[in-house]
Design a protein around this nucleic acid. Sequence first.
DNA 1: TTTATAATTCAATAAATGTCGAAATATAAA
DNA 2: TTTATATTTCGACATTTATTGAATTATAAA
Lengths: 108, 108
Amino acid sequence: MSKYKTIDMQGYADIFKALSNPHRLKIFMKLACCGSEGIACKSDKACECVGDLGSNMGIAPSTISHHLKELHRSGLICTRRNGQRIECWVDPEILESICSFFTCKAKE
Amino acid sequence: MSKYKTIDMQGYADIFKALSNPHRLKIFMKLACCGSEGIACKSDKACECVGDLGSNMGIAPSTISHHLKELHRSGLICTRRNGQRIECWVDPEILESICSFFTCKAKE
DNA sequence: TTTATAATTCAATAAATGTCGAAATATAAA
DNA sequence: TTTATATTTCGACATTTATTGAATTATAAA
């Protein structure tokens, strides 16, 4: 059995679609890359609320919300309510799956 | 200096967009995954012409052509004319770059 | 040269996407 | 309870995308 989440062709297409928009990619990298520790570390810095993620991006809150929903639908990020805020973080497991896709555990 | 091609944020967005369409992803995997050797092997099997790629996909030749152009524009595949045919193969270097992105050499 | 094959370009069209502001919902603070 | 803050949902709109068939270009074969 694989130690990775099983993701089918359509699942990968959805993931790549989620990352295909520059704004979403930026949000994803903000969450995934915390300092020098590399992608998908689980420190608090990797977990940000919707408003913080949207700051300095020059797009409306409703648009940020839309993009986060897309990232969540594809399985890339997890969310949790904490008071008024919704916290977001990258699912580390799915990153391993994507990595395995490109190092070719993935087959047709 | 990195041993990978330098790809900026927009470049990655373009790559993910190219892979976000199920038909294009299928074409890409046909090219990238040859047998049990894993992704991006350089054997002849990894190099197919436009017509062969389109067979069994149920879409028009003009659509295949369009998708291959997208894959090429993003830098994922290389092409070369051989007589009447255009041969396509995955650029192995760019795959290393993508892999490094997800193992987080990539930074904001 | 004429005919056949492979692939691309073009024009048209339907569907999907990104964006916003206004309205609604959820929670916290006064 | 009233007010403020954070986020989402909705409706509208402009842009982009996927797709096709017809016409065109490039090469090979007869």
